Simulated assay, not measured.
Amino acid sequence: MRSTSLLLALLAAATLAGCTQPQGGAGVLQTQGGRALAGAAAGAIIADAADENMVAGAALGALAGGATCNVGVGGPCY
Score class of each variant (00 low, 15 high):
Leu10Arg: 11
Ala56Ile: 15
Arg2Trp: 13
Gly24Ser: 13
Gly34Trp: 00
Ala44Ile: 04
Asp51Lys: 15
Ala44Ser: 03
Ala67Glu: 02
Leu29Ile: 04
Ala26Ile: 10
Pro22Ile: 03
Leu29His: 00
Glu52Thr: 06
Leu16Phe: 07
Gly61Cys: 04
Arg35Gly: 06
Ala58Gln: 03
Ala67Leu: 11
Arg35Cys: 03
Glu52Ser: 15
Ile45Leu: 05
Leu37Ile: 12
Met1Asn: 14
Ala41His: 08
Tyr78Cys: 13
Glu52Arg: 12
Asn53Ala: 15
Gly72Gln: 09
Ala40Ile: 07
Thr31Phe: 03
Ala42Asn: 04
Gly61Ile: 00
Tyr78Ile: 14
Gly66Tyr: 00
Val55Phe: 10
Ala14Lys: 02
Met1Asp: 10
Leu63Tyr: 13
Arg35Glu: 05
Pro22His: 04
Leu60Asn: 12
Gln32Thr: 11
Ala62Met: 10
Leu29Gln: 10
Gln32Ala: 08
Leu63Ser: 08
Thr68Trp: 11
Thr20Cys: 08
Gly39Ala: 07
Gln21Phe: 05
Thr15Lys: 05
Ala13Lys: 00
Ala13Met: 02
Leu63His: 06
Pro76Gln: 12
Ile46Asn: 07
Ala12Asp: 14
Gly57Asp: 00
Val71Cys: 06
Ala17Gln: 03
Gly75Met: 06
Gly65Trp: 01
Ala49Trp: 03
Ala64Asp: 08
Val71Trp: 10
Leu29Met: 14
Ala58Val: 07
Ala38Val: 03
